[in-house]
Structures are given as C-alpha cells and as structure tokens.
Amino acid sequence: MSTTIVERDVALIDLVDRLLGGGVIIAGDITLAVADVDLVYVGLRALVTSVATAEERNLLPRMGDAT
C-alpha cells in the first residue's frame, strides 16, 4: 500500500541530504565545512526557485471558506 521508493529511483535531494549531511566526518586535506554544505543548499534552492514558485501556499488557512 505504501509508496515504496526503492534504490534506483533516488531523488537528488535525498542523496544530497545523506552524502553531504551524513557520513562520518573525518578531517581530510580537503573537507567540506558546514558553510560549504549550506551553500550547496542555497545554490540548489536558487536554481529551483528561479523557476518561479507559487508562493504563499501555506500562509493562510483555507478552512471555513466552504462553511
């Protein structure tokens, strides 16, 4: 019954959350700092939101209009 998404159909965001947000952090000669990871998200958002999002979707309650 559940929408089971297994293995191969992995969304990039799920991947980024795990690869950049998880994994053991060990000092390398090059290691991403938290700020670098944040910038990746900022970059991703900038890309996606540039495709004009419908804003305010959740701002005002819709309930009661029908009553």
């Binding site: 690869l19 950049l20 998880g22 994994g23 053991v24 952090i25 060990i26 390398g28 000669d29 090059i30 290691t31 991403l32």
Partner: peptide, 11 residues
C-alpha cells in the same frame, strides 16, 4: 562499511 562524508579528499 562506514561511509565517509562526500568530498573528503587527501593530497
């Protein structure tokens, strides 16, 4: 395995 955070690089 112990996965390492992506972009852990060594010279």
């Amino acid at each position: 395995i112990v996965p390492l955070r992506m972009c852990t690089l060594y010279e």
